[in-house]
Design a protein around this nucleic acid. Structure first.
Lengths: 232, 232
DNA sequence: TATAAAAGTTAGTCTAATCTAACTAATTAA
DNA sequence: TTAATTAGTTAGATTAGACTAACTTTTATA
């Protein structure tokens, strides 16, 4: 049985490798700052996880997940996202409140509980933030998508997910009236300071990279993120 | 914020004092065996809880809860019983499975979460084992009831709750087909070995104190536990 | 009421997860 | 290609919660 702490390390590793495209390993410092602990602490813990065959690691090298470690980490994320969905759908929490509560709930271990919850919710595919929920085997479909920052002037896109789950960010998204599946028109891109002018439900907003880096979109017409040659 | 461990101490104290009629304090050894730790460990922890004004305690004396300690302990029990009800009512767990899962879930702190859950469940008064659920202020109505062992020959009683929440006990209760609110007729009481012959739904069973000590009943006619002068 | 048994305490040890401070290795840039 | 910077490691300390073993106080009983 994994401890609360070990599970958090594995979850962070999944986020920093599998969910970060084109990466399958990460350094001690990066993991430390993600978990808000010191590198020395990570160094100790990674050695423990290696003994348990959950990570691959050599002194002065990078950290990567073994298949077992990957599956364990994925299960934490499955539990997190299912609880978020429960809180949002059944207990009427807002999408900016669910993350923090799910950070605690994700450590309840029972497989049976989480599978019953999954069934109770009707086997949802996405959590309230638009993220895919790993299935019972820890498999996940990582959908094609890009950030709003990567979109070009004139593009018409659809928001599919948010990257940042913090209360502050989500409340800002609420404030400008944006909801998952909404259409966004990129009206202006200012190269100098990276400010972008977008139109949502007919209303213009000027937004900064702090915002656009954390919004995931696909082309509104073809629903692809790349290789979209749609003309409007 | 109380730790997982501190909460378990307070919960155990509520169970050993408030729920144990006529008691308002308990010794170090009793608490230790309830928590399955050594007396030395309890001694240390009780001193910590005293510093936090959660218990009253003097060296070589008995332990009792302060009003704050009582309320904190009661909140753990409220969370435990509401989660049990959720698992039983919404996720179709059997009554012998819910206790163990609730032991983990009871430590999720959010007041808002637990109050929303309460509302979602329709403000239940009793958990699946027949125990009353403390309200939002930590108040609880401890109903009049006695154990089946205390009933006399010829009594016709109604089961209102079980004392032991262990899987083994509850599966035995299921096996003999007994359900909360069922009527039980005490047909025979053998003083020699304390075996009791009961009739449930027309079927006779011979049961031991291991069973009768853990079944809470009231008089089936007047619904009182004591001072019942009903004649059949 | 003396003494044996039960209950409670103390001191010292252990483990998990964290830290700081000082060190070493690897990478980057002048 | 050497010096500076960044990344990673090691040793030693700390805290919470548990333990054992030896000791002391309280209670119960002969």
């Amino acid at each position: 049985m994994l401890s609360f702490t070990e599970e958090n390390y594995l979850k962070a590793l999944v986020q920093l490798t599998i969910f970060e495209e084109g990466k399958d390993e990460v350094g001690v410092n990066k993991l430390a700052s993600c978990l808000e602990v010191k590198p020395a602490t990570v160094n100790d813990m990674v050695r423990k996880l290696k003994v348990k065959s959950l990570v691959s690691y050599e002194k002065y090298g990078k950290i990567s997940l073994t298949p077992i470690g990957r599956n364990s980490g994925m299960m934490v994320i499955r539990r997190h996202r299912l609880w978020e969905t429960f809180l949002y759908e059944k207990l009427d929490f807002s999408w900016d409140e669910v993350h923090e509560l799910a950070e605690e709930l994700e450590h309840i271990h029972s497989q049976k509980l989480i599978n019953r919850l999954d069934q109770f919710l009707g086997f949802p595919e996405f959590d309230p933030h638009g993220d895919a929920i790993p299935n019972v085997d820890g498999e996940i479909v990582i959908p094609f998508r890009k950030t709003l920052s990567e979109s070009g002037k004139g593009d018409i896109v659809k928001i599919v997910a948010v990257k940042d789950n913090s209360t502050a960010f989500l409340q800002y998204v609420d404030k400008i009236g944006l909801v998952i599946q909404d259409e966004i028109i990129i009206e202006e891109k200012e190269e100098f300071d990276s400010l972008i002018t977008i139109k949502i439900k007919g209303k213009q907003h000027v937004v900064s990279p702090r915002f656009t880096d954390n919004i995931f979109v696909v082309c509104a017409k073809c629903l692809k993120a790349n290789d979209c040659s749609c003309k409007y």
